[in-house]
Computed example of a mutant assay.
Amino acid sequence: MRTFDTVRRFGNVVIAAVSVVALCCGAWLLRSGMGVHAPPQPSAAQAGSGRDGGPAGAAAAPALPPSPPDRIRIPAIRVSAPLRGLGLTSAGSLEVPPAGRKNLAGWYEAGTTPGETGTAIVAGHVDNAEGPAVFYDLGALKKGSVVEVDRRDGRVAVFTVDAVEVYEAEDFPDEKVYGAARRPELRVITCGGGYSRATGYRGNVVVFAHLTGSR
């Protein structure tokens, strides 16, 4: 059986750019009429600057020790969802939570845990065949919004959103999204961008946030 520390020894594996394309195929969007129920997309005003997506030099709270996360909460878009560990597929892309559990998100368990120094990755579906899923409204999130992560050690890591951006798959900025950070940072990722009947969503919505407190 793999322990948490054993899994984390492989945390420097590079995640491929196709990591979250499989977070949805848009079956519900297709069935209910393209564009009628399309999830919100971030505006240009929510884009950030710099490698971390947010303002350069933004203050961060002291890092927390490693601890697996159990739940993510984003009050502004009414998200409160359990988290499960995700690994990598044989192609080097990030695994995705089971599509049938629409209020479940996942975190890259071989990487940084939310709250410790580095870049923690959380991903979840935007929809499934039945309708909206956990991160359907992620593109509506604004700068300054709060993301809270309940950790197994009993602490709550509190992050502030620096930017919300959308990328087409061919332009996905691996280093900006997945690259190492010198402060505690968080990325929350789902599907977004243009939509194709043949392939589903063409890109991803990415939330960039950094640790600003804990309790």
Rank of each mutant, 00 (worst) to 15 (best):
R84K: 15
R31I: 05
F135E: 01
F135M: 00
P39Y: 06
V13K: 14
G213N: 10
L141D: 04
G11R: 02
A60Y: 01
R101Y: 09
A157S: 03
I121L: 00
P75L: 09
S49E: 13
V96N: 05
I189D: 14
A105E: 04
A61Y: 14
L29V: 11
A44F: 02
P66L: 12
S93L: 13
V164R: 15
E148C: 10
A209I: 03
G85S: 02
Y201T: 03
A198N: 10
T89I: 04
E95I: 04
K142A: 14
V36M: 15
A45V: 12
K102P: 01
L64I: 03
T160K: 14
Q46H: 12
S93F: 13
S90N: 13
E116L: 02
N12W: 10
L88M: 07
A163S: 15
V13P: 02
V207G: 06
P39K: 03
P62R: 08
E168C: 06
P66T: 02
Y167P: 07
P69E: 01
D162R: 10
A91Q: 14
W107F: 07
I74Q: 04
D127G: 00
G139H: 03
P65N: 04
A133E: 01
E168I: 08
I189K: 13
G124T: 02
P97K: 07
G111K: 02
A180D: 15
V205H: 11
